[in-house]
Amino acid sequence: MRNLILIKISKLYLVVMIIFSVFILLRGHNNPGGGFIGGIITSTGFIFYGIINGSERVKSLLRITTIELMGTGLMTGIVALIIPVFSGLEPFTGVWIESDLLASAGIHLGTPVLFDTGIYLVVTGVFLSIIISIMDVVKWN
């Protein structure tokens, strides 16, 4: 399936999907979206990319292994849950950065958002890992 147009489209699609998923992730706290959905959206981008370009290209595009991606996500989640301890709160409490400037732009930053990012990374990593493994074995190249 080496088709120049398809390859270009797949690249464009991937970029759009990644940007879109980050957007979905960040607005997830107030509108439909969040880490799970964002992660799956990114995966669809990679699937499309992978179907057209093969798994090797996906791997070289990623630079880090999917296992590392998942690990990073899990660590991010755990860190987000532990951060409140340093503020003298119980773990798992949400800690927010109070800023009028950000609030006026409709952006709230806090540990729940960080945790959501962790979810995003894990979900992305999990599905990428599964896709790449399956592609490797069925020799989808």
Partner: peptide
């Protein structure tokens, strides 16, 4: 979460089946 997990599990079974 159940939907996402069942997706993961289904993919796992798929791999296992293969």
């Amino acid at each position: 979460t159940a939907v996402v997990i069942s997706l993961g599990i289904s993919a796992y079974i798929l791999a296992l089946k293969f």
